[in-house]
Amino acid sequence: MILSVTGLVKTFGAVRAVDGVDLSVAPGETYAVVGESGSGKTTLARCVLGLIRPSSGSVVVDGADTAKISSGELRLLRRRVQIVFQNPHASLNPRMTIERLVAEPMRIRTGSKGAALREEVVADLERLGLGTAHLSRYPHELSGGQAQRVALARALALRPRLLVLDEPTSALDVSVQAQILNLLADLRADDGPAYLLISHDLAVVRHLADRVGVMYGGRLVEEAPAEQLFDAPAHDYTRQLLDSVPGRGRASMDLSLGVQP
């Protein structure tokens, strides 16, 4: 297992944002955490990334328990788990060029300098569909899709074992979303990292995930292989989520059900 989360609890004051979650992600697997705002999925992701320490329970990344190591070791462990955020422009330092943005993590992994480093950066960017013309640009000069590719390049430069994708396409247009989703599928096939996909968009989840955990009120209320979850949802909340996915026409609106506030 790349990631094993056991009995994870994170409280903020009296609020139990994550209230006892167990999940594990195997190498190369895509595990999707589905939930709405306030479900605790973002807090879960931040614990996995080592950005916050859990109140109790354990997060084991690549065999190392994040609770049992020093903050210095935790800092280095973080490099094995990277993240891609929802808003690509907010996740890139506006004062750095694309080249510097990708070179920063690249240098950490390879230790290269100068021309060699530049070559590595160019190679990675090309793999993600960006040319050398972008090297000297700043993030605001890129479209959303291009910026998200840079964010991906930056996250992948360390060759992480696990990539947390936090709503990676929800800020993008449909046509661009398709490009990024295809890219994510290609990278995975190409001996890439395992994905922990955080999303509320079930169509995206269906498209990418191998297993799905449905989160509600800080707990995983259902966990199943993707096919099974979408074909035969077991939990009421999962069914409600699936019923909310738009696109089945006016008849699906079923006004007779009424509207609960």
Binding site: R78, Q82, F85, S91, I108, A151, A155
Partner: peptide, 14 residues
């Protein structure tokens, strides 16, 4: 709190 700073932290930078 900005994502780009959180991202920098996940790179394991000091």
């Amino acid at each position: 709190e900005r994502p780009f700073v959180e991202g920098a932290r996940t790179l394991g930078l000091r």
